[in-house]
């Protein structure tokens, strides 16, 4: 059984890794969504309750995690558009690899632009 799997059109390439990243980012966003609906529901309890919990979103640790969240949302959304293009656009499969790198580039640029602004707010006073 010690046969090293040969590379295929799919395995080990952009198609596989984009799928892996899509799953991981999706699961991460899902669990954040559960927490986020619950924390927002606190506005119905009292202004104090909501403010106390939302303050934790402004702490350094959570503030840094938010960069990861924003990055995950951007990647998942843009890669989702790539998946739709592969499914419905006749040239989708031809350009799927190029589209993956465009998705990565746009995500990295957007997060890079957001990071200094966001961290200044989180670490500033």
């Amino acid at each position: 059984m010690a046969i090293k799997p040969a590379g295929t059109l799919y395995r080990g390439k952009v198609g596989m890794w984009s799928w892996v990243l899509h799953r991981i980012s999706g699961v991460g966003i899902f669990f954040f969504l559960l927490v986020h609906v619950l924390d927002t529901a606190l506005v119905r309890v009292s202004p104090e309750a909501y403010n106390i919990v939302i303050e934790s979103y402004k702490t350094p640790v959570v503030g840094l995690a938010e960069l990861g969240l924003v990055g995950a949302i951007l990647f998942h959304g843009l890669n989702g558009l790539r998946v739709i293009a592969i499914d419905f656009w006749s040239k989708g499969t031809k350009y799927q690899s190029v589209m993956f790198w465009v998705v990565i580039a746009v995500t990295v640029i957007a997060v890079a632009g957001f990071t200094p602004m966001h961290l200044a707010r989180v670490f500033g006073h």
């Binding site: 927002t40 506005v43 202004p47 909501y50 403010n51 939302i54 979103y57 402004k58 503030g63 938010e66 924003v70 949302i73 957001f114 602004m117 966001h118 707010r121 989180v122």
Partner: peptide, 21 residues
Amino acid sequence: HLVVNLVLGDGIKAIDFAFVA
């Protein structure tokens, strides 16, 4: 949602009960 709540104005700093209201 991300642009309005995290980018515009004071971003995350501005979010509190009054902001949601």
